[in-house]
Write a protein that binds this DNA or RNA. Structure first.
Lengths: 144, 144
DNA sequence: CCCCTATAATTAGTATACAAAATAATTATA
DNA sequence: TATAATTATTTTGTATACTAATTATAGGGG
């Protein structure tokens, strides 16, 4: 039962990334890059460390995503004067528009996904998923 | 609401892989490799194509997983005589034991994950997840 | 002011995930 | 039978995900 839940959670996650990638292809940006870009858009001058805390990912992965975002002209990184270890990240002019456009795509992507699922069921689902995730986190935090 | 579902599904999937990886580390095999090894264990002589049909993944990815499994001595690939494009895949002697050991690990991994979730809730959850996945698949199959 | 430790971020190395092209062998067709 | 279309699998190239090591900088004693 739990095993089945895990397998299907993985499958659904994979499908979601596939779906978003297909829709994002023409925008020349990846799903992960976009998630980061949005955070930067909402909080200009944010640091990598702060992004990490917001988005439970890996610092090495984030470092790569950020350099690709910069290479492709979506963001700028400015070395902080007070603390030279830190870089403040800003979204490039014109890229805010991308964030908005993506909201539209995202909506298009996720509409229909709740077909046949009632509002109450969705709430119930989220509630259980929240608990499941909480259990996963405490399980991971256990020592091995 | 749907967006929240997607985000959390992704998060949960990531957490699951993290958890399994931590437990599998000492066995010197990865989660993906193991999933494939199990299929081979259950159906000796299976082909890559057949594995693909069972495990909704990517053929290029599978190709890599198989070659690493072979490199590490977990499987053998034998060119089919009737059709030389095909390779029949067999689990190596001694690796069946690994599959069994992993079941134990998996159980250890997933126990506690349903803490605070009733049997009925889990069923409900799976039911909704099934529908969600079905919707995702038909959405992906739509033309763009 | 120097040494030590902590912190922010990048780099190196391995393993997916996936699209697209390439290989190699089989089958269908003119 | 020569050619075209298909099929099974691998290879190539790019982008994550993650661990471990490295770099550069900060800040706190002594």
């Amino acid at each position: 039962m739990v095993k089945e839940m895990c397998y299907k959670l993985n499958k659904s996650s994979m499908l979601y990334k596939r779906l978003m990638s297909k829709h994002l292809e023409r925008l020349n940006i990846t799903y992960s890059q976009l998630m980061v870009l949005r955070v930067v858009n909402q909080e200009p001058g944010i640091t990598a460390k702060e992004i990490l805390m917001q988005m439970d990912t890996d610092k090495a992965t984030l470092s790569g995503v950020l350099s690709r975002l910069e290479k492709n002209g979506y963001i700028n990184r400015v070395k902080n004067v007070k603390d030279k270890r830190i870089q403040n990240i800003y979204i490039s002019k014109g890229s805010e528009a991308l964030c908005n456009e993506v909201s539209v795509i995202e909506k298009a992507c996720i509409s229909d996904l709740v077909n046949g699922i009632s509002m109450g069921e969705a709430e119930q689902f989220l509630h259980i998923l929240d608990r499941f995730i909480k259990n996963q986190i405490s399980k991971i935090d256990e020592k091995f």
